[in-house]
Write a protein that binds this DNA or RNA. Structure first.
Lengths: 243, 243
DNA sequence: CTCCTTTATAGTCATCGTGACTATAAACAG
DNA sequence: CTGTTTATAGTCACGATGACTATAAAGGAG
């Protein structure tokens, strides 16, 4: 901006500003996205990303977190910890047929947990496999938002520690590897993955007391928590040729 | 969003939407940013990033390119080729004391060329060394926008080919290396840099005819153009300890 | 014209990270 | 007990990279 000249109300046009959320998770070895079914025109009956208008004294980040709580029915304590990052802002003049709407898109990374409770004005909310969501025709320009969000998260796994955002507070290295394999749609060598993660300081830290996860088949795995690191140096590059 | 419910005008608040530009270049072995001096309140007399309001039927990208042309006085032919990328959107309710303004920030990467012509409503426009600009108190939240833009460009050099956006259409590998060294504020080994760039397919391609740049001191250097590649695989990582 | 400096370019060598792979441990299912 | 599954430890070769040396080709100083 912010207006470089005098404050002349005729110099600008008022817009509606919204947030759109690509809420991503990993369940059943496949990436999923939270979609809501629209109840009203336009695009009534179509699937769309959750989102909504900014309140008068609310930043886009605050609005995103509020909408996330409303549309998923998650308790506020959980929503507070969710990893939320801006994707980009969509401002095509014709993206909403009703009026001029500028939308700030966010990607939210959540662990696999609850079936969503349709709240707010969403007629229906559901976890949809990402492949299915991208094949469907979503409302507005949500196809593109979803594609951009997916690509941002895919790339982010290479250079940042945000894969842990998909995991519960305590997790095994096998679960962490499954996140990478699911989001990248590729296979990774288990010993090599382990070596790389443990060699990156601050990526994960062992749960004290030698806690292990039992109950599955196979040898019990050690439990880890997300460490203080945020970036990966050097990066964890995804293989060139997918599985 | 975009409104999930019915179209109820009372359900949303109108905002002003602007773009802010961090126009970056490399000159005299130092990164520079284009700043304008504000003529009116608020922040009259302070330095600020160029920018302005979106027109009624204009996307943020279009507005950014238009403002870039207006505030730099560059010919449209040059502005069309400028690399422009979204940084993020700033929506704090109090970021503009006059009214509610949401701003989409862009980073523009331009080769070292013209001293800007103050156009539009900018009282004065000038290339400012980046270090100086970051030390100064810019108008609004432009300090933070500038910091975010710088960090995005710094990181982008590692994984993408956008360093060529700082170079003229034809350039030497020495010039390209100078871009990296300037933006990263680090020193790079010349033979190693050369080996890495030439080993990355599509990063640069030699100008046909064995064209060389003469006139400087030292052996004439071969000329290259930006290649078709957009990403760097594997990345060109910046050294851990700066110069 | 002859050094000297500067920049470009061609190599070498050791090291480190990584991919591919083998081996062992510890659980559960039959 | 046996086989299957998952976790963890370790080996080996290759490729990318950092550090470094050497040579080529220009201009400038004397």
């Amino acid at each position: 901006m912010t207006a470089t000249g005098a404050y002349d109300p005729s110099a600008y046009e008022p817009f509606a500003v919204t947030v759109d959320l690509a809420v991503l998770t990993v369940r059943a070895a496949a990436p999923h996205v939270l979609l809501i079914r629209r109840g009203q025109e336009p695009y009534a009956g179509a699937w769309a990303l959750p989102g909504g208008f900014l309140l008068p004294r609310e930043s886009a980040e605050e609005a995103a977190r509020r909408e996330l709580a409303e549309e998923t029915g998650l308790p506020e304590s959980l929503v507070d910890g969710v990893h939320l990052e801006q994707v980009r802002t969509y401002s095509d003049p014709d993206r909403d047929p009703r009026m001029r709407v500028v939308s700030v898109a966010f990607a939210a990374l959540v662990p696999d947990l609850p079936e969503p409770v349709a709240g707010g004005d969403a007629a229906q909310a559901r976890w949809v496999p990402l492949a299915e969501a991208e094949a469907a025709a979503l409302a507005f320009d949500h196809d593109r938002i979803l594609t951009d969000a997916r690509e941002q998260v895919r790339a982010g796994l290479e250079h940042t520690c945000l894969a842990t955002a998909f995991c519960p507070p305590e997790f095994t290295l096998g679960e962490l590897q499954a996140v990478y394999e699911t989001i990248w749609d590729t296979g990774l060598d288990r010993p090599n993955f382990r070596r790389k993660v443990l060699a990156t300081p601050g990526f994960v830290e062992a749960v004290p007391g030698g806690a292990r996860l039992t109950g599955g088949r196979g040898k019990p795995a050690a439990l880890y928590r997300a460490g203080p690191a945020t970036a990966l140096h050097p990066p964890l590059l995804r293989p060139e040729d997918p599985r």
